[in-house]
């Protein structure tokens, strides 16, 4: 009984490979170096798509968590989906930060700057790491799911507040510099096409990863439930056996005690 791999997922995976290949060839070979940024412009073909996927993933987590919390739509699938999506999101956020940092080093001369987008993304990364940690905890599955869903929604609500505060914080210091798209690189023609292909490629990769991961989580949960059932059945079997034994014991005990009780009574009777 092999797990059914949906043909849709297969097609998505196949397309993702083609588009990733296209991004690599276009991004590294065919497109010319930028007039201002030189070779560094090539990072622009992967960095924004990575960030886009990260936000898509967190959006999915938030929606799925909301659907899980809402009693009328509550189903295990929403919890599983939000978990799978958050995990993929954390991977892509990490990569967004790394590629952004690598782009920043030669461009700004530093690995890190407290730019609002960067700061907000870094906080998001840590927030969802916490969420994943919460999900990994042992315990009752429904309790954990409900708590994780609440945590995911809280984290999601925090995003605009973080954005607002870091934007104001930042506006006191310097003007935004990252991805004010017109400014650092004039993107047009084949470069714009490459960026678009990059977006499609990473979105497809995300979809494939999400659904494959979801399949694994579903199956894992089923095995966990199965294991639980087996354990319960064994326990119940033992308990039943125990019960039978103890009831027999208690029977003999009660018979003993009644006989012993009869003892003094009869003695009393005899004395009378």
């Amino acid at each position: 009984m092999k797990p059914k791999k949906s043909p849709v997922i297969r097609v998505i995976g196949f397309l993702a490979l083609i588009f990733i290949g296209a991004t690599l060839v276009l991004g590294l070979k065919i497109t010319p170096p930028d007039a201002i940024q030189g070779q560094m412009v090539r990072i622009i073909y992967i960095h924004p798509p990575l960030a886009w996927v990260a936000f898509l993933a967190y959006g999915t987590t938030a929606i799925a968590s909301g659907l899980y919390l809402w009693k009328r739509t509550r189903a295990r699938i929403w919890d599983q989906l939000s978990g799978a999506s958050a995990e993929v999101g954390v991977v892509f956020t990490g990569l967004t930060l790394v590629t952004g940092s690598i782009w920043g080093r030669p461009t700004w001369g530093v690995w890190w700057t407290w730019d609002p987008l960067l700061t907000a993304t870094a906080l998001l990364f840590v927030l969802y790491l916490g969420y994943l940690a919460l999900r990994k905890l042992p315990g009752d599955i429904n309790q954990r799911s409900k708590r994780s869903a609440i945590a995911a929604l809280i984290a999601f609500i925090d995003v605009p507040i973080v954005q607002m505060s870091v934007l104001w914080w930042h506006s006191l210091h310097q003007k935004p510099t990252v991805f004010n798209p017109g400014q650092p690189a004039q993107i047009h023609g084949i470069m714009a096409d490459t960026l678009l292909i990059g977006f499609i490629a990473f979105t497809l990769v995300w979809l494939w990863l999400l659904f494959t991961r979801l399949g694994v989580i579903k199956l894992e949960e089923k095995i966990e439930l199965y294991g639980l059932e087996v354990a319960l059945r064994e326990r119940r079997g033992e308990v039943n056996k125990d019960l039978v034994e103890t009831s027999q014991d208690s029977h003999s005990k009660t018979s003993l005690s009644t006989s012993s009780k009869q003892g003094p009574d009869s003695q009393v009777l005899v004395q009378k």
Binding site: V126, L127, G130, L134, A151, I154, A155, D158, V162, S165
Partner: peptide
């Protein structure tokens, strides 16, 4: 308080609570 009740009753609540609470309080 929300995170305190989320993390409570888990064995690792002492370490989990700061991980959840500190990033959220950044703003």
């Amino acid at each position: 308080t929300i995170f305190g009740s989320l993390a409570s009753s888990f064995k690792t609540k002492d370490t989990l609570l700061p991980l959840l609470f500190l990033p959220i309080s950044a703003p």
